[in-house]
Design a protein around this nucleic acid. Sequence first.
RNA 1: GGGGUGUUAGCUCAGCUGGUUCAGAGCACCUGCCUUACAAGCAGGGGGUCACUGGUUCGAAUCCAGUACGCCCCA
Length: 882
Amino acid sequence: MSTGTKYNPKEIENKWYGSWLEHGFFRSKPNPKKEPYTIVIPPPNVTGVLHMGHMLNNTIQDILVRRARMRGKEACWVPGTDHASIATEAKVVAMLQERGIQKSDLTREEFLEYAWEWKEKYGGIILEQLKKLGASCDWDRTRFTMEEDLSAAVIEVFVDLYRKGQIYRGVRMVNWDPKGGTALSDEEVIPKDTMAKMYHLRYEVVRDVDDVLNEGVPAYITVATSRPETIMADVAVAVNPNDERYKHLHGKKVRIPLLGRAIPVILDEYVSIDFGTGALKVTPAHDLNDYELGLKHNLPIIDILNDDGSLNEKAQLYVGQDRFAARRNIVKDLEEAELLVKIEEYASVLQTSERTGAVIEPRLSLQWFCKMDAMAKPAMEAVMEDEIKLHPPKFKNMYRSWMENIRDWCISRQLWWGQRIPAYYLPDGSYVVACSTEEALELARHESGNADLQAEDLRQDEDVLDTWFSSWLWPISVFDGFKDPDNKDIQYYYPTNDLVTAPEILFFWVARMIMAGYEFRNEPPFRNVYLTGIVRDAQGRKMSKSLGNSPDPLDLIEKYGADGVRTGMLFSSQAGNDLFFDEKLIEQGRNFSNKIWNAFRLIKGWEVDETLPCPNETAIRWFESRFNAAFVQIEDHFSKYRISDALLSVYKLVWDDFCSNYLEMIKPTYQQPIDKETLKATVGFMEQVLKVLHPFMPFLTEELWHELKERKELEYIIVASWPKKDRFNKEIIDQMESVLKVVAAIRNVRNSKNIPNNKSLDLSVKQMGQLDYAPFLGIIRKLGNISEISLVQESVEGAISFVEAGDEFFIPMEGNIDVAAERERLLKELEYTQGFLNSVTKKLSNERFVKGAPEAVIANERKKQADAEAKIKALEQSLAAL
RNA sequence: GGGGUGUUAGCUCAGCUGGUUCAGAGCACCUGCCUUACAAGCAGGGGGUCACUGGUUCGAAUCCAGUACGCCCCA
């Protein structure tokens, strides 16, 4: 091991990760003697590479798992990836294009072959990257949502839900991605604020036989629309019945511009009078609101668009043109026909595809849906009643409002990469749903009464299932809970303990897993959900590859070490709060690694002299208590899932208490040996400190654990026992706090008087308070570089004085003290203390306070009063002595 | 428009059940130190009207109401 002043993580990280794997420390098997602790990884997209969000998320999971393992739990962290149908299909299509192959030239089977090829080659890179971070997953359990068993589970669930009447086929307005050629869920749609154009078009009013208005001159109604290319799909113009401007048009018909088809004017309160012109064209096939209006008024539906967003023959005009080209052309033609009144700009929201970026087309289409009402109910109750706890709990409200307004889940996707929907169509157009072709055939023969039906007569649905329809089963399927519902793994590990994920997918993943948990196992999938924030850059933008504002996590690990990156990320990462990433944080993490490294170097460098007595009893007694007190706090933070707070407590314990205070107290003079007892205690403390550090900084702690002492073969810190909560002496902690304040005051005098550190000083104490300094004199001498401490009865003249813990301290200054400055300083402090005393006295003389406040609070106020009085007295005497 | 959530130091955020010198932490900043584990360090220090206005209370950063501004979700 190199013993330079800088910690060098590189070879150490590879060494220990390999060693952990070799010894199987990450592996887990059901063990009836131990309590299980289980986490399933939120399966990253198989096409993905590690980004900062994964780093944060997986660091937290690893911390939880490592702590559980040390606490003697049977810790099991199941890794894996999902098949991400849309993203992966896009990558495969791109790969094919590079080879000059079009997807449309391939059969489904051929395409899937390429897809698997791609997956084998590039998929799962992300899991390798997680190893660099130190993730202690049970890699033998790695699962993939498209593998055979997990796919079988998906099909089985589909069939099961279908037979329970929970899955149906229906016409719905879906978010259609014309570029991807598939329907998207609402969550896969990204709204973008844009400036849109509002076109005001003239629709000619059809004259009735008895029409008297404007004889000979055509009358018009002006309709505002942002989508002029859809007028060919218009089936009505709607106005508000209360709109005075259009009263004369009630019951009339108007003609679609250019096309000339007559459509009715309908009345509906839904139309807002002040938006646009107050007249709304109704296009049920291409707008959700219009669709509903159409249903209400019994209007026909005319769909003029093809799958790829071009116009079909039903449009009659611009057939074959893309929707945007058609828009440009129709605007030109309308203008020429003088049917375009004006064009207005207005702020609007454009719906775009998360994957392809294409503008979403609201489109009627035949899709498969999963009913949500029944399953949502227990899932909502579980969270509301804390059977499943969200951390932080502020997300409960959001969860509830979503679950209360839940809509059916569109589960079909027009893709090939995914589990194909197990619906089989008969020649007559009816269909059966079954787990296999054979079963489907049997069913089809039975239902149709046609025993001659052959497999070739059945046509399987072309669509695949939404990837989330795999992911929602993840906590069950990774333990083969569908294939073999009573197997040992699922019995032992399910329900899992904690889930760590981002609030963005609380609804469409977490909520659905909860539904699946109750639906298929009658138990929740997990007990706690820890929601991380989003990692943003310094300007608050979400880190993303497309923005190029995200550092490569592996570069960071290379530069700062995995431990540094892990702790750095966690420093300012409260649960549920977004994290503003700054490389400074990682630097701080790296510096912390280095601090620990150097503390180790100090201890390792000492020679022991067995004959020496132990001069450090007080320091040892104090740190023991200090550690236990801090540990109680750390455990409290963990129990509340305040991981960042737990880290900060560890950080302060290590840096301030252990390094700055304890080690400085016990450190022998340079090149002097240390006594046996102190060394033993210190090595023991170092071990304890390394243990509480281990979940956060696994590599460094494993290294130092082995360097600190000879270890037996399987004696690794990763499986060392977590400290136990122990009693601590509050008194010595408080006393030391006062003593350290005295030390700080001495150092302050040194600093403000420009007295060098290596020049020792004398100190006199005029004791008036309760603290017995005897056990602490050695510590004050050492930390304050004091050569002599004397107890005095009278104030010392010609000295700088200060008051701590009710006692007055003097540092004699050979001669020149700036009396005026000293007086001013003392007066200022006196004034402050008097003010403080006043407020306390006022409180105590308030009868209602004394009557109303609890005993402890009053006692405390009295103590404050006494302390302040003592301090004032001391300050006054110092002033007099000047 | 509906719902949620937030506003505390220059920045990022703690502050739990109202009560300790409660106004805190980390970073940043200032001053002095290459002191013998660590300059990726040591020692010391400055910095806030707890968004605003009212209310409840002996007592409010904390509880309640309203206002302003921000963010998120849904329409």
